[in-house]
């Protein structure tokens, strides 16, 4: 990806150094009713980093992701994204969400809009781009995810893998500083998983800051800079992939990796 969408291309090489983090999460707690889904979670994410979050369902990994752009509100603790405090202030929120792209498990494309309009809508409304500029950017992104020929189709006419690639292009059109992926391949037929992971890989190589919740261990191992293992609302482990998948001491983690690998 070239410099215009790959924010942080130049930062990527420096990301291993202790630069000031792009996202800071401090002592975040969150409950749904009586169930505590996040228990005092603290971590940070650097620019250019690909962090992969894994863990059993219900362990809080999607919830953490969704608190980062306030689709869920945290009960206590503090989250700062690119200098923007994540709170209930509407100006903060709209600014924050414009900088944070999100890709959903169920794609959530707008079914009443063509592929091209799906990608153009937010840049026109939020960035106030004129139609020709928004269209040029959208076409370029669709080209990149391999869907230039489908620009005028509606989402229902595309396969799941194609829809998810449109969803990635739609997020990228806002030129976000960071991309959140919430189980992006979990709703896909097996033969379509690869085309989506390939686009994500390409994005990672271009230096995009990514936080990915997934069960794709191959992707985690190959693309991740960091693996965060969630267990019962806490970050049970935070390690480089070669350590996480290699010399794994923790019995529970070994069991989890084994289960996911068999599935």
């Amino acid at each position: 990806m070239t410099a215009d969408t790959g924010n942080g291309t130049d930062v990527a090489s420096e990301s291993k150094m202790p630069a000031s983090p792009l996202i800071t999460v401090e002592n975040v707690c969150k409950s749904f009713g009586s169930v505590q889904v996040l228990e005092d979670v603290s971590t940070h994410f650097n620019a250019g980093e690909v962090a992969v979050i894994i863990g059993a369902s219900g362990s809080g990994k999607s919830t953490l992701l969704r608190t980062l752009n306030r689709l869920e509100r945290h009960d206590s603790g503090r989250i700062v994204v690119d200098g923007i405090e994540v709170d209930d202030d509407h100006r903060h929120l709209d600014a924050l969400r414009a900088e944070v792209g999100m890709v959903f498990q169920q794609f959530n494309l707008f079914p009443h809009l063509s592929v091209l309009d799906n990608v153009m809508l937010a840049p026109r409304r939020v960035r106030k781009l004129a139609r020709p500029q928004a269209e040029a950017r959208a076409r370029e992104l669709l080209e990149r995810v391999g869907l230039a020929a489908h620009a005028h189709k509606y989402p229902f006419a595309l396969s799941g893998g194609q829809q998810q690639r449109v969803a990635i292009a739609r997020s990228l059109a806002m030129q976000p500083r960071v991309m959140l992926f919430d189980e992006p391949t979990s709703a896909l037929d097996p033969e379509m998983v690869k085309e989506v992971l390939d686009v994500m890989k390409q994005l990672a190589q271009a230096g995009m800051t990514m936080i990915v919740v997934t069960h794709e261990m191959g992707f985690a191992r190959e693309v991740g800079d960091r693996i965060l293992f969630f267990d019962r609302g806490r970050i049970a482990q935070d390690a480089a992939p070669e350590i996480f998948f290699g010399a794994q001491q923790d019995e529970r983690v070994r069991a989890f990796i084994g289960q996911v690998a068999r599935a």
Binding site: D94, A95, E99, F104, F110, L121, A122, R125, V126, A167
Partner: peptide
């Protein structure tokens, strides 16, 4: 998920509703 997608793109409540 439709509202979540629109909001996560930075669209405000008004545009989310209208578009």
């Amino acid at each position: 998920g439709q509202v979540e997608a629109a909001r996560s793109l930075g669209m405000n409540r008004w545009y989310t509703f209208i578009d």
